[in-house]
Design a protein around this nucleic acid. Structure first.
Length: 575
RNA sequence: CGGGGCGUAGCGCAGCCUGGUAGCGCGCACGCUUGGGGUGCGUGAGGUCACCGGUUCAAAUCCGGUCGCCCCGACCA
């Protein structure tokens, strides 16, 4: 392709509305433009990368025996009402009415649609298993779209759904997809890690996320420094605590009430009393399912995991109650709350069980209790794992490992769904004994456009993007320093033709621009291999071959250039 | 949903406080110049100052409202 006739509107300056690096570079490189919040145009260069990613995904999904299909973007409310998600999904589900006033939504994911298709077709165990996937635009009306392509409202996704007779077969497919995903992300040239994950709005009981490691990532992760345990913090398990042999004879010193004027947060009180935050019991009031207030206790240095809390309380929704509400019910200013004498139902994290010598609010403004002894002073209605995993925690899977924390961008997630959708929507088959059984299901997603952004987050330098070869928009950029000059043009043209003939993807910068402009743009758009053709090299009968990533330059005789470039690209694509 | 910020030429910004009819850099067009990391000089085109309303002789500027976009938060008592 010749630059003169392409549509690659590069920008010298960072766009004012872009914050994260991938967003800035993708806009500057002329790859994306924003249309509305969380909605973008994909320009030709970006589309080339998207197609590359899609093709890798297709090849690997097909190799794993899955089949591609295409489901509609809009689906009728009835399907979502059947699964119960019309009510549950909330505002993220973009709803609208057609001209006949019938309710529809834009698909944020397609379990309902595919289950509906499959239930109308599958009758017998002989017709399963199979795995169907599509690559398509999804729409989720995110609370807060941000970071360019990383969290958009409209995005491209590969989603796959598999159907099985029993759990064993479904688990087998899950494992196959796990391996397939590893191949896909490896081929895309990403540094990633699979982690155990929560199943969120999709549902099911087993799930892994594939996280591209990046400090700018939205997800907090933990992994063991000794075994291969890794999880999203939302899912991260806490090693069950052994109650260290508590000496029952030894009695605790009596409760002591101390003045802590104006000190509300654990950090403030801890500093005021010169005590470590681990000695504190935090008392948080949650509103459960829009009605009951429940007090949740965690250690001062721990954080409540709302997800685990919901599980423990077996409720739909649990969020911090607002101050006014807390005040009205307990007559205590938040900040001085404590479990002793609090007129609310109490649930406590397991780390609170048996705690002694602790500090809590005294349920009286400007006072805290010291020497709190859980067994003596208060009894929660339940103890459970309610907190977020964090760095330094002992590994829940092995004996001596400790957890480390890092951040990631979730580019893929796989779920074992079980019978959640098949039972709700009556997707069944007849087994060999003629009995009707609900189908077992799995589902498997990859965020294609988010993967594109993640690749940039992980592969760039001060000058621009550095595409991994496998997903680069072009393999080679030919850069004739002065295309106008006959000698240079002739070499550039013949090299261009020769490389195309060999099946390489080549972009030729035939613009009549200053060399500096061309070099800057070349770095910005990040084609992995750049061939400079200029008077300097031609004087020696050479062109220059430069790798974008390493910056390493090599002079190659004109006659050998095509061969050498071809060989280099072939090698680079082998990985 | 709460808080903060922004909206002036294609892009990045100044002007607004202290009202007097719009400016800089880049880009764009043309000419000369230059020609291996965003050349230099000159000439020129390009703006309902987001929108609606108000105050005023006069509004980009002051006041009220609306819309759009960005950032932070929406969980730590």
């Amino acid at each position: 392709m010749r630059w003169n006739t392409t549509f690659i509107p590069t920008l010298k300056e960072d766009p004012a509305d872009a914050e994260v690096i991938s967003h800035r570079l993708l806009v500057r490189a002329g790859m994306i433009r924003q249309v509305s919040r969380g909605i973008y145009d994909y320009l030709p260069l970006a589309l080339k990368v998207i197609r590359k990613i899609e093709n890798i995904v297709r090849q690997e999904m097909d190799r794993a025996g899955a089949q591609e299909l295409l489901l509609p973007i809009a689906s009728p409310a009835e399907l979502w009402q059947e699964s119960g998600r019309w009510e549950v999904y909330g505002k993220e589900l973009f709803r609208f009415k057609d001209r006949h006033e019938r309710d529809f939504c834009l698909g944020p994911t397609h379990e309902e649609v595919i289950t509906d298709l499959v239930r109308r077709v599958v009758r017998s165990y002989r017709e399963i298993p199979f795995n169907l996937y599509q690559i398509q635009i999804k729409f989720r009306d995110e609370v807060r779209p941000r970071f360019g392509l990383m969290r958009g409202r409209e995005f491209i996704m590969k989603d796959a759904y598999s159907f099985h007779a029993d759990m064993e077969d479904c688990r087998r497919e899950y494992e196959k997809m796990f391996q397939t995903y590893k191949r896909i992300f490896t081929r895309c040239g990403l540094n990633f890690r699979p982690v155990e994950a929560d199943t969120g709005a999709i549902g099911g009981t087993l799930s892994h996320e594939f996280q591209v490691l990046a400090d700018s990532g939205e997800d907090a992760l933990v992994s063991c420094n000794s075994c291969d345990y890794a999880a999203n913090v939302m899912k991260g398990e806490i090693k069950a605590q052994r109650l260290s042999g508590r000496n029952l004879k030894e009695s605790s010193p009596p409760l002591k009430k101390v003045a802590t004027p104006g000190k509300k947060s654990v950090a403030e009180v801890a500093e005021f009393l010169s005590l470590p935050t681990a000695k504190f019991i935090k008392t948080l009031v949650y509103k459960v399912d829009q009605k009951e207030l429940v007090a949740v206790l965690v250690r001062g240095d721990h954080e409540v995991n709302a997800l685990k809390l919901k599980l423990a309380l077996n409720c739909q929704e649990a969020s911090l109650a607002d101050e006014a509400r807390v005040d009205e019910t307990t007559h205590v200013v938040p900040g001085f709350l404590g479990p002793i004498g609090l007129g609310l139902r109490i649930v406590a994290d397991q780390a609170i069980q048996g705690i002694r010598g602790a500090v809590t609010g005294a349920n009286e403004e400007n006072f805290h209790y010291l020497e709190v002894d859980q067994e003596r002073d208060f009894t929660p209605s339940a103890f459970a794992d309610l907190r977020m995993a964090m760095a330094g925690d002992p590994c829940p899977r092995c004996d001596h490992g400790a957890l480390e924390s890092y951040r990631g961008i979730e580019v893929g997630q796989i779920f074992y769904l079980g019978k959640k959708y098949s039972e709700a929507m009556g997707a069944t088959y007849l087994d060999a004994e003629g009995r009707e059984q609900p189908l077992e299901m799995g589902c498997y997603g990859i965020g294609i456009t988010r993967l594109l952004a993640a690749a940039v987050e992980q592969n760039h330098d001060a000058n621009g993007i550095i595409w991994p070869f496998s997903i680069a928009p072009f393999h080679v950029l030919l850069l004739p320093v002065q295309y106008k000059e006959k000698a240079i043009r002739e070499v550039a043209d013949s090299l261009y033709e020769e490389l195309l003939k060999r099946g390489l993807e080549v972009l030729m910068d035939d613009r009549d621009e200053r060399p500096g402009v061309k070099f800057k743009d070349a770095d910005l758009i990040g084609i992995p291999l750049r061939i400079t053709i200029g008077a300097k090299g031609l004087g020696k009968g050479c062109v220059e071959m430069r790798r974008r990533r390493e910056g390493q330059t090599e002079e190659v005789p004109v006659g050998e250039a095509a061969n050498k470039i071809h060989l280099f690209v072939t090698e680079a694509l082998k990985v």
